[in-house]
Amino acid sequence: MLLEVQNLKIDFKTHDGTIDAVHDLSFSIERGEAVGIVGESGSGKSQSVLALMGLLAGNARVTGSARLAPGSKGGAPVELLGAKPRVLRRVRGARIAMIFQDPMTALNPHLKISTQMIELLRAHRGMGKRAAMRAAIDMLEAVRIPEAARRIKYYPHQFSGGMRQRVMIAMALSCEPELLIADEPTTALDVTVQDEILELIAELRERSNTALLLITHDLGVVAGQCSRALVMRGGDLVEHGSIEKVFNAPEAQYTRDLLAAIPRLEG
């Protein structure tokens, strides 16, 4: 077991009262496994993974447990919920990496891509500046960015949306994390570019046996990328099982409604 989440609850204190975002969510991920969390906007998908990364807003209250198994060098399991900032800094990027919906807001617009990637590699892999630059270029080439040695010196705004997402994937996988969290990684991209990005993530994961937690509202993406699916609605987990079970024999009416809403060419 790589990650085990138990009884995760999230609420937010506001001027209008308390907003319950996630209710008693439990799931696990094995090493190398791909798990999808699906549901409509506001179902609690993104808030759940942001809680694991320690990235929720300051008015959030989180309870439950999220235990990350010992790494390849051994040691004790890491409790992510409520962990001290120094503990999360060691985990984020190195053991768990995240691809966000909008790479333009996730990347620092004031720094060149080279600066951002080198800083990451030096912090988490202890590389010297020259070795980090070489590794960063290699990673950009791995995500099929043409003329990587030249374009690594670009600023984020000099890349197209699809290319920025490739940069985000390169950064996320450059430290060889054990778990990759992808939060709606293709939402703002053209359909053809979406397919390229998803194929790229699958290919790079297979090379490194990286586990994937994929957050999306697109059931088709989950079917193509994952072996298990969690279906959320209004902060609740309403369905959980293998892709075959969820798609062919769903138990929850909400899951059946989601499947029925998928456009079909026939009929």
Score class of each variant (00 low, 15 high):
46 S>D: 04
106 A>G: 05
153 K>D: 15
231 V>I: 15
155 Y>R: 07
73 K>F: 08
47 Q>A: 13
72 S>Y: 04
215 I>Y: 06
108 N>F: 02
225 Q>V: 14
134 R>Q: 13
128 G>R: 03
111 L>G: 01
52 L>K: 05
96 I>W: 14
209 N>D: 15
137 I>L: 12
190 D>G: 14
127 M>Q: 13
105 T>A: 02
175 C>T: 10
217 H>Q: 10
143 V>L: 08
176 E>K: 00
119 E>T: 14
86 R>L: 01
125 R>K: 15
178 E>L: 08
172 A>Y: 10
64 G>T: 12
42 G>S: 07
90 R>M: 07
152 I>Q: 05
245 K>V: 00
76 A>N: 12
31 R>W: 04
10 I>C: 09
161 G>A: 03
56 L>E: 05
262 I>M: 05
193 V>A: 03
56 L>V: 06
104 M>C: 12
233 R>M: 14
154 Y>E: 13
158 Q>T: 09
19 I>Q: 13
102 D>E: 11
34 A>K: 15
236 D>G: 02
22 V>E: 10
59 N>L: 09
82 G>A: 13
71 G>I: 07
78 V>H: 06
64 G>P: 01
212 L>T: 12
251 E>K: 09
210 T>D: 11
107 L>W: 10
249 A>W: 03
252 A>N: 11
117 M>C: 05
177 P>D: 15
